[in-house]
Computed example of a mutant assay.
Amino acid sequence: MLQPHIQLDESLGIRCALLPGDPARVDRIASHLQEVQELAYNREFRSLRGTYRGVPVLALSTGIGGASAAIAVEELRHIGVTAMIRIGSCGALQKEIDLGDLIFACGAIRDDGASRAYADLRYPAVPDDGLLRCCQAAAAEQGWPFHTGLVRSHDSFYIDDQEEVSNRWSALGVLGADMETAALFTVGRLRGVRTASILNNVVLWGRDTAGSIGDYAGGEDRTALGEAREILVALEALYRMEEETR
C-alpha cells in the first residue's frame, strides 16, 4: 500500500535504509551507490534507491525533528524496511569532540515530544546492539575518530535557557545533542526495527549553534568530511549486517 507521507510502497522490496535529515544529503548518499533511482519527494521526505556492494539500500530524508522521523520509521516499516541508520548532525556537549568527529549513540535522552507520545519516559531509547557494533567496526577499520555514548534529543535550540540546559547535560557526560535519535530508537524498538544513529559533530562545545550550523550548510571542510564518513560507515554497517544474517 502506498504510504501517505513518504509516498512509497512495499513493491520496493528493500530492507535497509539510511535516514538523513536534510533532503540535500540524499544527493551525497547517491554518490556512494550504484544503480541509483530517484523515487519520491513529498514534504520533507525525499527518497532514492541504489545498491552498495550488492545490497539494496533506500535513502529517505526525514526533515527536522522527532515527529517526522517517527513518521518515517512507521511508514518504512509498513513497506518492509527492517534496519534503519540515521546519518545526522549534532552539537558537541564535550570539549574533546572535534568538528567532523562521529558520535555513535548507545542511548538517547528523551527530551523530545515525539518519543514521549509513544511510551513512558522510563522506557529506554537505545539502538540495536548488533547494528551499533557494525558501525563501530566499520569506522575503526578506516581509522576514523568516533565516540560512543549518550546523546540528548530535544525539540528546539532556540529556547531561552539553552546554555543552562546544555551545561547540565554536559556535566552528566552526554556527548552531543540532536533532534531525532530518541524518536528513532523508541519507535524502532517498539516496532521491531533495528536502528542505529551516527551523528557528525558540526558545533564545538561552547560555540554558537546557529552560526556553526550555517558553516556546515555552506560546506565547511571538516564537517563535510564527517558527513562523507558517516555515510560510508552507515553503508558498510548495513552491508556487514546483511552478511552476518545470510
Rank of each mutant, 00 (worst) to 15 (best):
M1C: 13
M1D: 14
M1A: 15
L2M: 15
I6G: 05
I6Q: 11
D9L: 05
D9N: 15
S11L: 11
L12K: 06
G13Y: 03
I14G: 02
L18H: 02
V26C: 14
V26N: 06
V26D: 05
R28C: 02
I29E: 09
I29H: 06
A30R: 12
V36R: 08
V36Q: 03
Q37M: 09
R43N: 10
S47H: 09
Y52L: 09
Y52C: 07
Y52T: 02
P56F: 06
A59N: 04
A59W: 02
S61C: 13
T62C: 15
A67H: 02
V73G: 04
I79H: 10
G88Q: 10
L93E: 11
G100Y: 06
I103D: 07
F104I: 13
F104H: 07
F104W: 04
R110S: 01
D111H: 11
D111P: 00
G113S: 02
G113I: 01
A114W: 07
P127C: 12
Q136D: 03
A137F: 00
A140W: 07
E141P: 01
E141N: 08
W144Q: 13
P145L: 11
T148L: 15
L150S: 14
H154F: 02
S156G: 02
F157K: 12
Y158D: 11
D160Y: 14
E164V: 04
A171S: 10
L175Q: 04
M179D: 02
A182G: 12
A182D: 08
T186F: 01
V187R: 15
G188V: 05
R189A: 12
R191I: 00
R194N: 07
R194H: 06
I198H: 00
N200H: 11
V202F: 02
R207P: 01
T209I: 12
T209Y: 11
S212A: 12
T223Q: 05
T223Y: 01
E230K: 12
E236M: 08
L238K: 09
L238A: 04
R240N: 04
E242S: 08
E243D: 05
